[in-house]
Every structure is written in structure tokens, then in C-alpha cells.
């Protein structure tokens, strides 16, 4: 059969592989190469070495976006995970209506980023309207708007993962602790939290990558206003490519840096989860 199988390569693999090469392999290789070039279209690229990379680190739009992204990601990871964890605790107590609550909390996660952005744009501007201002007035408004939006979107998602983690804790360990006279807070700190650590790792990295790569929500909620102060990295890369003539090379270099950071996060995540699995 093994020799036989080879004859079926064109049918089984070729369609996927051709599409994969066209929309990933070639664009990736070209993108890497173009980050070292000056160009206005792909056809007129001219090798300039590290010029683009030098340019982007003296571009305040880029460094601001990087800093904004880091701050936003840090705040989101903490708020989303804490709130999701407590919701998961509340929904594993066997309260009436648990399934309905779970359904409701998870729902925002299914809505697309552009739609999410405009929903919250309407609401935040409606609230700020009472004070005669709007979300583009101050960068802080945009920042906290994005944090609220991200929490609304991701809490239910992370909650569901925490619920699965909590339900995996064997009942008898809890019972043994109760018999030994452990208090509620002791049980949470000494048993529940250590036992759900794998879920914590997964959720932390999921929130991390989701927040770090945020684009649609950022575009729809503030589009970077005021004056690009609320642009995150992905939006800044987009604006550099399509909004600043002569900066395409710099845009591609920013994209490479963006990729390297994302790859580093993924690599650390792999290490972290592997470590956990080896222990348990």
C-alpha cells in the first residue's frame, strides 16, 4: 500500500499544498525579503539591508504602538483571567441555571471584532455623551474602552476553560481537605489554584496572544484616535503599509518584528505547557 499511496499524492495533498504555497509560503518568503528592501510595489524592490529596521526604531508611531500594546496586553491578561476564574468558581457550585449563565457569558466571544468595536463605540460614546465628550477625545478613554471590550469578549471564553479545569479536580481531594478542617480560602489557595494551574497557563497565553494581535476591535473602536495614540502594533503596521507612501519597507520590517514577538510568545507557551505536562 505504501508505494500505492504515493500515486495519490496529487489528489490528497496537492490542492491543499498549492493553496498553502500561494497564500502562505510565497508571501512569507517575499515578506521576509522585502523587509530588507525599499519598495513602493513588489516589482520595484531594491535591497537596502537593515535600513528599514533602523528606521522603525526611530519611528515614534511604532514605539508608541509597542508600548500601548504592552500596557493593554498586561491589563487585559490580568483582568480577564481574574474575572473569568471567579465566574468559573461561581458556575461550578451547582447553582440553578448554571447552563443558561454559561451560554450567556460565552456568547460575546462569537461576535466578530469589527462588530464588537462598533457596539462598544456606540455604548461608550453614549455614556461619554452625558459628559459632553467622546472616545476620541483622550487616549485613556480609548485604552479603557479596549480593555472593557476585550474583557466582555474573552471572559466567557476563558471561563469555559477554567470550568473544565475545575471539574477535573477529583472530588475526594476536596473532601479530604474539608474533613481535615481546611477553611474555604485555604482550599482555594492550596488545592483549587494549584490543580487548575494548567488551565491558568492556557488561558494566560490565549489572552496574551489575543490581546497582542488585536486589530479589528482597535480599528472599529478608535481607529487609533486621538492622533494615533491608541494604535496598537497591528494597526500601526497596517497604517504604515497603506497610509504612508514610501514606508512600505518599514511596514514590512515592523511586521517581521511583530512576527518574531508572536513566535517568541508561542515558543515560551510551548515550553510552559510541556513543563506542566512533565510534572503531572
Amino acid at each position: 500500500m505504501k508505494n500505492n499511496l504515493k500515486a495519490y499524492f496529487p489528489l490528497f495533498v496537492l490542492p491543499t499544498l498549492a493553496a498553502f504555497i500561494i497564500s502562505f509560503i510565497i508571501p512569507f518568503a517575499m515578506g521576509l525579503y522585502l523587509s530588507f528592501c525599499r519598495f513602493t510595489t513588489v516589482a520595484n524592490a531594491e535591497w537596502t539591508g537593515l535600513e528599514n529596521y533602523r528606521r522603525i526604531f526611530s519611528d515614534s508611531n511604532f514605539t508608541n504602538a509597542l508600548w500601548f500594546t504592552v500596557k493593554f496586553t498586561a491589563v487585559s491578561v490580568i483582568t480577564v483571567n481574574i474575572l473569568a476564574f471567579f465566574l468559573a468558581l461561581a458556575l461550578t457550585k451547582g447553582i440553578r441555571g448554571t447552563n443558561v449563565f454559561r451560554t450567556i457569558f460565552f456568547m460575546p466571544n462569537l461576535i466578530g471584532g469589527i462588530v464588537l468595536g462598533y457596539i462598544w463605540n456606540l455604548i461608550i460614546n453614549g455614556v461619554l455623551g452625558f459628559f459632553g465628550t467622546d472616545i476620541t477625545y483622550k487616549a485613556e478613554y480609548g485604552f479603557w474602552g479596549l480593555v472593557v471590550l476585550t474583557n466582555w469578549q474573552l471572559i466567557g471564553y476563558m471561563m469555559v476553560i477554567y470550568i473544565a479545569g475545575l471539574q477535573n479536580i477529583p472530588r475526594d481531594i476536596m473532601e479530604a481537605a474539608e474533613i481535615d478542617g481546611a477553611s474555604k480560602s485555604q482550599i482555594i489557595r492550596r488545592i483549587t489554584i494549584p490543580m487548575v494551574m494548567p488551565s491558568v497557563t492556557i488561558c494566560t497565553f490565549l489572552t496574551l496572544t489575543n490581546s497582542f494581535k488585536l486589530f479589528d476591535q482597535n480599528l472599529a473602536l478608535t481607529a487609533g484616535a486621538p492622533a494615533r495614540e491608541t494604535s496598537m502594533l497591528a494597526l500601526d503596521i497596517y497604517n504604515t503599509f497603506y497610509g504612508r507612501p514610501g514606508w512600505q519597507g518599514a511596514g514590512q520590517a515592523k511586521a517581521v518584528i511583530f512576527f518574531i514577538i508572536a513566535a517568541a510568545i508561542a515558543f515560551i507557551q510551548l515550553r510552559a505547557t510541556e513543563g506542566k505536562e512533565a510534572h503531572s
Binding site: F24, F28, L34, A234, Y238, A255, V256, F258, F259, A263
Partner: peptide, 11 residues
């Protein structure tokens, strides 16, 4: 692990 922004222009 490759973000869309890395390939969007060339894709």
C-alpha cells in the same frame, strides 16, 4: 504562529 500582518501585503 505567523500573524496575518506578516504576510498581508505580499499575500
Amino acid at each position: 504562529i505567523v500573524p496575518f500582518q506578516m504576510v498581508m501585503y505580499t499575500m
